[in-house]
């Protein structure tokens, strides 16, 4: 067909060919540009992580040299604005670790049981309703959690404190703003994350494992706790690690409920975390104080990176097991 028209309309055919050639080279150019742009977009996240790391290190290390590593990390006196300031963040680090640990201990069991409910126990409709509630909990801003904690939880804690320490002279009353309040708020805040990821993991456990367990005469509860949850372990580990990350990194909610003085992390002491030190002091800090705050940020960053690496390890392990 084509060569006939080429003979008959030789000229216009040649023109069309030319045009097609031009179009093709233009199309090729567009293709190249598109690919380049997409590649750039893709590597933006790499760029972001690299520059965040760089900035955290560059801004966080000067204070270490000026104050000394030992005097920052392992000294417990935090007096950044005193005449002879000291910048020991030992208690701050400890508080962050203690608060996170307590939040995980309090929050993960409830979250896991809820995940079991959603994936194994509840009838479909009920599961959908509870699942929707969990999703909504995940979307509530952390300031609101902080506000509820401050208005509802702190007064309860204060009453508890008054009862427990009524005969303990020298106890510094916190008005309920203490480590325990912060841990409770954090526990609630990590629940949605832990629930939804564990639920997915539990649902992914193959049905034949359950069948085998039932065939051996196991009850539903036995099957859940002895077969299903162990089989979902990698996924649940992922959920817990993500929960740890969330708890460690949460700033606003805990800054409202934790009191804010630098203290040994005990349940009824007012405490300051790595994150709350940053949000409450960054606004007015200057000079060396500000540099030390960046070191605080660096410490938090290192913790989070360690968590990310362990998460990556778990995920890789999981991939290997799937093969």
């Amino acid at each position: 067909m084509q060569y006939i028209s080429a003979e008959r309309y030789g000229n216009s055919y040649r023109n069309a060919e030319k045009k097609r050639y031009r179009d093709r080279s233009r199309a090729e150019l567009v293709e190249t540009v598109a690919e380049t742009v997409f590649t750039f977009c893709a590597f933006c996240s790499v760029l972001a992580v690299a520059s965040i790391t760089l900035y955290m290190v560059v801004n966080g290390t000067p204070a270490v040299f000026r104050v000394g590593l030992k005097d920052i990390l392992f000294s417990s006196t935090w007096k950044p604005v005193a005449k002879e300031p000291s910048f020991g963040i030992f208690y701050v680090v400890l508080s962050s670790i203690a608060g996170t640990a307590m939040a995980v201990i309090l929050g993960v069991p409830v979250a896991l049981l809820t995940a079991v409910f959603l994936a194994e126990v509840a009838p479909k409709k009920l599961a959908a309703t509870v699942g929707a509630a969990v999703e909504l909990l995940a979307g509530i801003p952390s300031v609101i959690y902080g506000m509820i904690g401050m208005m509802v939880l702190n007064p309860v804690m204060y009453r508890l404190e008054q009862r427990i320490f009524a005969r303990t002279p020298g106890h510094q009353f916190t008005g309920g703003a203490n480590l325990l309040s912060a841990a409770l708020v954090l526990a609630v805040m990590i629940m949605p994350t832990v629930i939804s990821i564990s639920e997915t993991a539990i649902r992914a456990v193959p049905a034949h494992l359950r069948a085998s367990s039932y065939a051996l005469g196991a009850s539903r509860v036995q099957t859940i706790f002895r077969v299903v949850l162990p089989a979902a372990k990698p996924g649940i580990a992922t959920a817990v690690v993500l929960g740890v990350g969330r708890a460690l990194g949460e700033a606003m909610a805990v800054s409202l409920v934790s009191g804010g003085s630098v203290n040994v992390p005990l349940p009824f002491r007012s405490v300051r975390f790595l994150t709350t030190a940053l949000v409450s002091e960054m606004g007015y800090a200057g000079g060396l104080h500000r540099q030390v705050l960046f070191t605080v940020g660096l410490v938090l960053f290192v913790f989070i990176m360690l968590i990310n690496l362990s998460l990556n390890r778990i995920l890789k392990e999981r991939e290997r097991q799937d093969d």
């Binding site: 520059s51 965040i52 900035y55 955290m56 801004n59 993500l242 990350g245 969330r246 460690l248 990194g249 949460e250 700033a251 994150t275 940053l278 949000v279 960054m282 960046f294 940020g297 938090l300 960053f301 989070i304 968590i307 990310n308 998460l311």
Partner: peptide, 10 residues
């Protein structure tokens, strides 16, 4: 997985 305070500092 990065906490928002870190984004804030950066």
């Amino acid at each position: 997985g990065m906490p928002s305070v870190i984004f804030g500092l950066f």
